[in-house]
Amino acid sequence: MEIELNRLIAHYASLFFKVQGVYRYTIVPGTSGKGRTSPYPGIIFPMNGQAQYHFNGVSYYAKPSNVILGGANMALDTRVVGNTKWEYILVLYQVFYPEEGDVCLSKLHTELTVGHSTRLTELLYRLWNISDLPGGLPAFQKEMLFRCILDEVFVCARNHSEKGDGMLFEKVSSYIQEHYMESLSIHDLALQNGINDNQLYYIFLKNAGMGAGQYLATYRLNRAREMLITGNSSVKEIAINVGYPDPLYFSRSFRKRFGCSPSDFRKNQE
């Protein structure tokens, strides 16, 4: 179901809404299912892998470069495609007061192309980490983070709807996400796309808020953090698996990014 982006943004701006739940799922390849969506509208934020969704019979192809908006109480068919685990974060929210105009989020299903935003990924993990914490401050932070996430989604979607450097950023960032475990050179990435290092830097700065080198490092460290949480590999193995042949340099980079060593981070998750 297509909807003009500015109309969608204006509609959210006119609403009072509240987060009802934040969920993170990991589903094995080949899994499929049928059912209905929740009583609340929600947004699917793909993190890894790919899946096909059918909302009331309309098909959407979910992958890390887009987000899916789904309505309430809709017929839903899902199927994980490819050979990679399907990972996503789902945010459900409640809309208060009747929605005015011809847009109703409870009846809407659509997708937005947002590309690969490191800031969006960081905001989503922060939201997920605090979503179940008790107390007034986490409840306040949850609402504020969700609005920051929507802001990032809308900014990224607008950038990708405009002509310019968005397609090149999408191409290079997708390549980084597929080959981050290899020895990548920012200079070589620029050359293979017919531009120089400075041009690549400004394209990433415009679309991701950071240069290509920082984007690559941030993506590698985020993947390492996920491996420390979900796997049993040693720190040395994880370092190599995310493109750091020197475990010492990896540990220093991880500490600088997250404020603690990889080993301490893993202990804190236990």
Rank of each mutant, 00 (worst) to 15 (best):
T230G: 09
H54T: 08
L92Q: 14
P46K: 04
D77M: 00
V153S: 13
E226L: 02
C260T: 03
R24D: 13
Y201F: 02
I195A: 06
A224D: 03
Y25W: 14
I89T: 03
K63M: 12
Y219S: 08
Y93W: 04
V80H: 05
L133W: 06
Q141G: 12
F17W: 05
K171A: 07
N48E: 14
G57Q: 05
M1V: 11
L191M: 15
T230C: 07
M74D: 11
T113Y: 08
E170I: 02
P245F: 10
G82H: 04
G33Y: 04
Q177T: 12
S234P: 01
E143L: 13
G243D: 07
F258E: 04
F140K: 14
N48G: 11
I176T: 04
K34M: 10
M1A: 11
G194P: 13
S261I: 02
L248Y: 14
S174R: 15
E87V: 05
F45S: 03
L221R: 02
L105S: 08
F254N: 04
R257L: 03
R266Y: 01
L92I: 12
P41C: 01
T113S: 02
I203S: 01
Q94N: 07
T118R: 14
R223Y: 08
L191G: 11
R79V: 11
A157N: 05
R79T: 05
M167Y: 12
V80L: 01
G30S: 00
